[in-house]
Amino acid sequence: MKKITISGFGGQGVLSLGKFISYSAMFQNLNTSWLPSYGPEMRGGTSNCSVIYSEEPIAAPVIDHPDYLLAFNDPSLAKFEDSVRPGGTILINSDIVTTDVKRKDVTVYKIPVDTIAQEINPKGGNIIMLGILLELFGDLKEEFAIQAIEHVFENKPKVIPINIECLKKGREYIKNLKK
């Protein structure tokens, strides 16, 4: 089971990144849940979602201690940093986030996803992150992530190849970083 909290500004593809993970898990025949925050959030404020996938049926769709936190802006890091389980992973979009992670008991990756995406698809930062996650998770197969992209962009077939490219680029980036 993996529990993932994704948070950022509206418009950064935070909620859709969560959906891509859930779709990938579903296509791989895993159980999954995607729970968005739907509170009275303001434009420009933070939005977040909780995503779980598992071979077992999913009990609570809420997450108190995520295995992974994806922080796309500073308020998100401030809000969720303490919730990550010890030994968990925090990924931050270093193009936006300027504060440092204080926790010492988690693995931190600072990734300029927007910069990486820029030359392929300026809106593809979240797909770069999806590629990175595939590599870190190790149990979600790329073919199902590609299927998820094809499904979500069914009505915009033009953007499918550039998003698949983003996915592969993200994966490659983290492979090189880990070396």
Binding site: S33, L35, P36, Y38, P61
Partner: peptide
């Protein structure tokens, strides 16, 4: 509740 209404599951 809103949780069940807003969330997604297969």
């Amino acid at each position: 509740d809103g949780m069940l209404g807003q969330m997604m599951e297969p």
